[in-house]
C-alpha cells in the first residue's frame, strides 16, 4: 500500500569560524591597464558561486559594470588570505572585505581625481561606470582608463579587511556569542511511503530560505536545489556500510546517490531581511540549505506511516522492519 504524509523541518545556522576565533578576510583592489578593475581575493570558487558573488558585490561598491571587473582567486602569490571557503562565510566575511576594499579604492581614486581635475576637495565626487566626475559640474570628469595610463608606473592597489565579531563561550556554561550572523529556513515535503517495499518517494516540496539579501537569486536557488538533493541522499540512500572500520560501499555502484530520477522540482522561496553588518545585507546560505530537508522527510514518513525512524539512513530494509514491528505491536 502507498501512504502519503506531510512533514516540516526548520533550522537555524550560525556562520563563520565562530567562538571568538579571529575570522579575517582580506581583499585587494587594483586599477588595471585600460581602466578595468582587478579584485584579488582568496575566495575559492568551489561551485557555490563565490567568484560571481564577489564580482557583484565589487561592482555594486564601485558602481560599475560587473563585466569590467576581473577577479583573481586562484594563486597564493597573487592574493592575500581570505580564509577558507567553508563555514558559510565567504559571502558575509569576504563579501564585506571586498566591499571595504572597493570603498577604499574609490577614496584613493577620488584623491587622485582631485589632483588631476584641479579641485579643492573630493567632496561631491561620484564614481560611475569607470568614470569619476563632480556631481555639481559633471564636465569635471576623468576616466579610470586615463587614470590607469597616468599612473601606470605607480600601481594603484588598495586593501580591505573584515574581521567578524564573535565571543568565545565560557568553558563551564557555554555562554557566549559563538556565531554571527545566524541564518534561518523552513522546509515542507510531501512523501509517499510504499509499505510493501519500504521505499520513500518525494512528491512535492516547498523550501523557504532566509538569505538576508540575495546577491544572485539564481545562484541562491541553485544552492537550495543542491542542498536539497544532498540531504535527500543523506536521509534516504547514502550508506557506507561501515563495519569494523571498513567502508564496504566505497564506489558509486554501491554508495547510492540521488539521481535526477529521485530529485523533484522544489519550490524554492527566497526570504529577504537584510542584515545590517553584512555586505548589502547578504548572509551566507551554502550549508544551511542542506539542513531542514532531512527532518522534514522524517516527519513526513511518520505522518504517512505512523512509524518514527530514529536511525539514519531510512533505507527500505530499515523502514520495512520498522513497519513490521509497528504492525506487530498494534496486533498485540
Amino acid at each position: 500500500m502507498k501512504k502519503r504524509g506531510v512533514g516540516l523541518g526548520v533550522s537555524f545556522y550560525g556562520t563563520g569560524y565562530g567562538n571568538g576565533f579571529p575570522d579575517v578576510s582580506n581583499a585587494e583592489v587594483q586599477l588595471l591597464e585600460g581602466g578595468k578593475v582587478g579584485i584579488f581575493v582568496g575566495a575559492t570558487e568551489v561551485g557555490q558561486g563565490a567568484k560571481t558573488a564577489m564580482i557583484q558585490i565589487g561592482a555594486e561598491a564601485l558602481n560599475m559594470d560587473h563585466k569590467d571587473i576581473v577577479l583573481v582567486s586562484e594563486d597564493t602569490s597573487q592574493m592575500m588570505d581570505s580564509g577558507t571557503a567553508a563555514a558559510t562565510r565567504q559571502t558575509y566575511n569576504t563579501g564585506n572585505a571586498v566591499k571595504i576594499a572597493c570603498e577604499n579604492f574609490n577614496k584613493r581614486l577620488f584623491d587622485l581625481a582631485k589632483v588631476e581635475l584641479g579641485l579643492n576637495s573630493t567632496a561631491g565626487l561620484v564614481a560611475q561606470d569607470g568614470d569619476i566626475y563632480l556631481g555639481i559640474f559633471p564636465q569635471k570628469r576623468i576616466s579610470y582608463k586615463d587614470l590607469s595610463e597616468k599612473y601606470k608606473d605607480d600601481i594603484i592597489r588598495v586593501v580591505g579587511s573584515f574581521t567578524a565579531q564573535t565571543v568565545k563561550m565560557d568553558d563551564e556554561t557555554g555562554q557566549g556569542a559563538p556565531y554571527w550572523p545566524y541564518t534561518f529556513n523552513a522546509c515542507m515535503v510531501l512523501v509517499e511511503v510504499d509499505t510493501n517495499t519500504g521505499r520513500v518517494e518525494l512528491l512535492k516540496a516547498a523550501f523557504a530560505q532566509d538569505v538576508g539579501r540575495a546577491v544572485n537569486p539564481s545562484l541562491v536557488k541553485g544552492q537550495m536545489d543542491g542542498g536539497f538533493a544532498m540531504s535527500l541522499g543523506y536521509t534516504l540512500f547514502e550508506d557506507l556500510a561501515l563495519e569494523n572500520g571498513v567502508m564496504k560501499n566505497r564506489k558509486f555502484s554501491k554508495y547510492l546517490l540521488p539521481t535526477s530520477m529521485d530529485m523533484i522540482d522544489v519550490e524554492n522561496i527566497i526570504i529577504e531581511d537584510p542584515e545590517s553588518t553584512a555586505p548589502y545585507g547578504a548572509k551566507g546560505i551554502g550549508e544551511p540549505v542542506t539542513i531542514p530537508i532531512g527532518p522534514a522527510i522524517l516527519n513526513a514518513i511518520y505522518d504517512a506511516s505512523g512509524v518514527r525512524i530514529f536511525n539514519l539512513p531510512v533505507t527500505p530494509e530499515k523502514l520495512m522492519k520498522a513497519l513490521r514491528e509497528s504492525e506487530e505491536s498494534e496486533a498485540i
Partner: peptide, 22 residues
C-alpha cells in the same frame, strides 16, 4: 548561549510561506 538576535531573524516569514501552501 545568551546571544541576542538583534535583526534579520525572519524564521516566522519562512514558516508563513509554508503555512500558505499547506
Amino acid at each position: 548561549t545568551g546571544q541576542v538576535l538583534l535583526e534579520s531573524v525572519p524564521l516566522d516569514r519562512c514558516l508563513e510561506e509554508l503555512v500558505k501552501r499547506y
